[in-house]
Design a protein around this nucleic acid. Sequence first.
DNA 1: CCTCCAGGTTAACGGTCGCTAACCTCCCTG
DNA 2: CAGGGAGGTTAGCGACCGTTAACCTGGAGG
Lengths: 196, 196
Amino acid sequence: MATRTDAPTRREQILREAARLFAERGFHGVGVDEIGAAVGISGPGLYRHFAGKDAMLAELLVGISGQLMTGAKRRVAEAEQGPDALLDSLIEGHIDFALDDRDLITLHDRELDRLRDSDRKLVRQLQRQYVELWVESVRKVYPELAEPHARVAVHAVFGLLNSTPHLSRPGSLPGRAATAQMLHKLARGAFAAAAE
Amino acid sequence: MATRTDAPTRREQILREAARLFAERGFHGVGVDEIGAAVGISGPGLYRHFAGKDAMLAELLVGISGQLMTGAKRRVAEAEQGPDALLDSLIEGHIDFALDDRDLITLHDRELDRLRDSDRKLVRQLQRQYVELWVESVRKVYPELAEPHARVAVHAVFGLLNSTPHLSRPGSLPGRAATAQMLHKLARGAFAAAAE
DNA sequence: CCTCCAGGTTAACGGTCGCTAACCTCCCTG
DNA sequence: CAGGGAGGTTAGCGACCGTTAACCTGGAGG
């Protein structure tokens, strides 16, 4: 079972580099030739793997929202230790994502409007479900928190957790584990304050 | 003294519309013709007011960082009621900005890399000073909080406060004052949790 | 009344960009 | 060993974009 130590497929390579470049310079700021060059082929060779530049962005964004949503649903399903532990689990999942896939997090709320209508609707729907899932989870921990307030708090905490790309690039910061722990505390602190 | 109910000058009009369009579709996603059309003139007419498209972005970004920095310095200078009130004042200032100038907040951390080297350095320096000012202020309230941790917390709280553009556009949300108050509580809660 | 400039206009140029066309070359398979 | 598809290549097209050039116009000032 060498399922997941395989060499990355060409498609995956392309997506990784495209994500990096899009995050760095914006969708319109990157040419297909650069994306090709980043994986060692040049320009139009990409069209053997994708229908076009738009298709790469679409696959990235749909993939992200899908991954986040899938992970969150799994966590909800596996929750057996009460609402408090579930919220911690959601936070932890989001932090892992924010720390390990900075480029994707960046794209996620930056280039959504560059998508075809149908793709954009799909992504937005997944995002909305994800938010809703968090809102419910938060309100189970803090039942006295009204729903609109909970929604604002959830969006704000996403902003907080997604701030990782702004931390100086590699990280002179306290180290990955410590940063994760710190973000977790900050998020819980924000929710607690919202409810008080 | 009709100093600030004057009709906005053409330059100001252009900057406002450019900020809106840049925030909506990205710097490279907007053409000069569109910016012109947004203020009722067309395309090349902009060059009577700006040296080029880059110059507009530069003026916007330098202006933002400058405004934030100036406001924060003023608040520090006027602080007479101790560190706690100062931190509240900084938070309040940042929230006002985030709520009233969403487009600028969006540009601020999205299009920085599209600037000429000199401008980018200037903006980054202002940003760094702004962060530093916050870090000092936070550490006066929570002296037990180590500096690197305080810096991470400050960045995270910026992410939290800057989340306002993601709240559904006009705002079915609790209303401006209530949202501001909510964000304030969340930010203070996050800092408190960081220090605990 | 003439002048001149601030602030527009349209035409056009050069460069870039996404994408297609046409072709080439392994390598796998019957 | 023929052949065919997968995955490249380069050349080039058409569209668009930022910018410049050349020209026009209304109104303020001497």
